[in-house]
Each structure stands twice: as structure tokens, then as C-alpha cells.
Design a protein around this nucleic acid. Structure first.
Lengths: 237, 237
DNA sequence: ATCTATATGGAATGTCGTTCCATAACAATA
DNA sequence: TATTGTTATGGAACGACATTCCATATAGAT
């Protein structure tokens, strides 16, 4: 599964110099897939539907994409590419890490299906690019070189993994039920739990109902980054 | 989608007092599903195969489980339940949080398909239990009450989200390629990248090849927990 | 014995990913 | 301008799957 694109730069999908006017390309196929995924979610994307929108047959798509897994992986990478293009460059160090993380979260929040499909260790273009940019910023923090990989990967995993968790209700749950309704129902469920078995949850139903996803993301992120600076500059007695 | 079990405790699946000897139950169905998921992964689990192993037809399973999504969600919750049963209870505070997190990671590592299926906000029994136990431990750290929800959720999201990311290659990639081979190939890929576009990655290929998944999990976890203690006791000048 | 809710299991349905292949469009040759 | 080979297309066909349907069985209650 999953691309295994390997070495040989595949010419596939690159429209030949003097191709026809209505020529497909991997870029077009993936771009249209992103539209469809935004509209109907992962389950709603079918090769038939995609082919229909591109005025072709399902078979033609397989010239540009190996299978549905690769298509979705490429679509998710495409989303990440847009996010990175928008990401601010100026800041360095921990502030830059925070800004980059939030930018990526926002992008995944706009394309909920993508969050689950960005995976480590990276092999796709923009996923690699994200990890590399995190690595560069980590390098700037003055951490010893032997920790660069572990810390950069930890931050990458936090961004993609936690984003996926926070966004998951939008994907897992029936999309027809809105966020507020879902949270209200879940809060009601928590409030009905037996306090002997669940001493904590009944106390935080209000916080569940009112919380903001982005704040939830930055709460953990800031803990992580605080821990990072605390490690970088050991506690000044 | 997804349970919506609602209130009414469903009698379904509970074998009636004097049922037949070969009676099914939700517990049996889910337990067998866990076995099959461990053996063949999420794609390899089919209702036909599950029915065959239980000496029944596919239709019978739908009496105990609404659909495949619910089945897998229940199976993942089952895994979490086992992990929590094994989890050490003694320690409290930050040390207890760390121990609990690692226990859950190990369980998900043994059942890679489950990591992607544990989602927040929780509605299933053991997922709720995990979040609650995290909450209790967070309460013990002396954090102000208004931060309890945000911090407990952040830790929950870290555990489940980052575990899923770290374990993902075992699920996403063809299971026939072993971890070492996959990492070696990815490392080779990184080493061939253009250093102008990717200044960081080529330097850490060795670390990628040699890293340990559990260490990767604890690296970020310890950063997060360090940040937590730094927040709890503000820096003592 | 009869009745009814619970539970079963195999057959039928429809949708999907994917494969296949006959054909089209174009580029390079002659 | 014909010819040939490669690149690309698109629609039909295949096989697997989740899910539904329904005729039947089981066991407790009457």
C-alpha cells in the first residue's frame, strides 16, 4: 500500500508538452479529489464520482494514481502544501514552532478528512517539508544535536496526531449532526455517569460544551513548548 | 454513525439467563473481532469471516452490533479496557500520569489497528474511564480548577493521537514489509533529498533508522509533563 | 400445548474499488 | 503525408464487501 513511489520519477500525470486541451494530470485529479473530499468526506469520495466530475471514466484515473489510498494520501499532502505556503516564515525558534503548528492545525481544521491521513515517517513532498521546517526550528533552539531528531519528531507527531484527535468528531460522527449538538449530547451523557465510577467527568461538562478546538490544540502545544524551553535552558536555580 | 447508543441500556448481546449453550453475545462478537483485527488488520476483518469463525451467518451479527464502525469502535474500547485493568494504580500526580500514558501506549502498540479508533470526546465505557483517570490525576497536581478540563484533554489527546501517529506505519504500510525495512527505505529516501530544499532531514537519517517507538512516545510526553510541572509551580526565581 | 419476544443464519441486493481492453490522440519517424 | 509506437482514455465487467431481508428456530410465559 501507500505509494512506494520509490526512486524513478514517474512521468505519469505530467501533461506532455503539446497534450490535448482536456488532458488530465495527477495535479488535476488530486485537486478535484480535495474538492470532493471537502464536500462529501472520505466515504463520499468514489472513483465514479470523481470520474464524472472530470468527464471521464473511472479507469482513466488509474493512469494518474495507483489506488484510492494513494489518492487520499496525495490529497492530504496537497492540503499540507497549501498550509505551508501560507505559513509565516519570519519567526524562528520556539515562537516560530508555535506559529507553524497553529497554521497547520487551522489547515487541517478546514479539511477534516486530511488530519487522519498525514502520517509519519514522512515520504510525501509537503509532509517531508513540514518535518524539515520543524527540524530547522528545533536546531535553532540550541538543543544538543543528538536530541534534534527526537524532539522534532515529537512536535511533528503532536501537531498531526493531536489535530486528528481534536478534529475527529467532524469525521467520525455523522456530519449532519452539528458540533454544538454533538457536544451538548456528550456533555449530557457525562453528567449522567455514576460519580463513583467517574469522579472527574461530571465536573467538566460545562467546559466540554463551551471549549474551543483551537484553544484545546494550543493548550497542549504550549505545555510541550514550555517543557522544551525548560529543557533547553535548565532551571536557573 | 458511531453508536449513538443513547440512554436505553440495550439488552441486546446480553445472553438471556437460560439461553442456549452456543448463544452469541456482544462481548463474544467484539472479543472475536479483536482477535481477527490482530491477525488481519482492519481491512482484513469482514462480517463473513467473523461469522465463519463464530459458526453463524453475517446477519446474526447485526443483532449484537449496529454496523462495522460500531464493531471496530467497541473493539478498540475493549483494548483500552484491558490496558486500564493492567494499569498501575498506586502512583499519583505527574508520575502517575506518565505511568498511565505508557501503559496505554504499550497496549495500542500491541493492537495497532486500535490506535486510530480511540477518539475524543469519549462516549464509550473504557475511553471515558481513561479520560476520567487522567482527570483525577490532573486534579491532584494542584492546578487551578478552571484548567482541569483543558489539561486533562490535552494529555488524553497526546496519548491517543501521538500513539496513532507513531504506530501508523504498521497500519498504513503493507504489513508484509517489516518495520526495519520500512525505516531503512525511508532513511535512504531522506538521504537522497536535495539539501537546499530539505536542510534538516538528511542529517537525521541515522536517528530515524535506529529510533525506538516507545522512546519517541515518552520524549514528547516528558516535554508535555515538564511543561505541566513548570506551569503548576511557577519558576522559583 | 400455544404464543410471543428474542435470536439466528443464509440468501439477495446494491455499491464500490479495481482490472481489462478496445480505441483514441499525439510524437516521432520515414 | 502515411506509418508506427507510446501515452492516455473511458466504459464495461469482475469480485468483494457491508448491509438488508425474511423464513425459521429457540425458550420462557400463559
Amino acid at each position: 500500500m501507500m505509494c512506494q513511489n520509490g526512486d524513478m520519477a514517474r512521468t505519469r500525470g505530467r501533461a506532455p508538452a503539446g497534450g490535448r486541451a482536456d488532458a488530465l494530470s495527477q495535479e488535476i485529479v488530486v485537486g478535484t479529489a480535495v474538492e470532493l473530499l471537502d464536500e462529501h468526506g472520505e466515504r463520499g469520495l468514489t472513483f465514479r464520482l470523481l470520474a464524472q466530475r472530470l468527464n471521464t471514466g473511472p479507469g482513466a484515473l488509474y493512469w494518474h494514481v495507483a489506488n484510492k489510498d494513494e489518492l487520499i494520501a496525495l490529497a492530504a499532502d496537497h492540503v499540507l502544501g497549501e498550509a505551508l505556503a501560507d505559513a509565516p516564515r519570519p519567526e524562528g525558534g520556539v515562537a516560530g514552532l508555535r506559529a507553524l503548528a497553529v497554521t497547520v492545525f487551522d489547515a487541517l481544521d478546514r479539511h477534516p478528512w486530511a488530519a487522519f491521513r498525514v502520517t509519519a515517517p514522512a515520504t510525501l513532498e509537503h509532509t517531508l517539508s513540514l518535518l524539515d521546517r520543524i527540524g530547522v526550528l528545533v536546531t535553532q533552539t540550541g538543543l544538543p544535536a543528538e536530541r534534534h531528531f527526537a524532539v522534532a519528531t515529537a512536535i511533528f507527531n503532536y501537531i498531526t496526531g493531536v489535530s486528528a484527535q481534536i478534529i475527529s468528531p467532524a469525521v467520525t460522527v455523522d456530519p449532519s449532526v452539528h458540533r454544538d449538538v454533538f457536544l451538548a449530547e456528550t456533555a449530557a451523557h457525562w453528567s449522567r455517569l455514576d460519580p463513583a465510577a467517574y469522579p472527574f467527568l461530571p465536573h467538566v461538562t460545562e467546559a466540554l460544551r463551551d471549549h474551543d478546538d483551537r484553544d484545546q490544540f494550543t493548550t497542549g502545544l504550549d505545555l510541550l513548548l514550555t517543557g522544551l524551553t525548560a529543557t533547553t535552558r535548565p532551571p536557573q536555580r
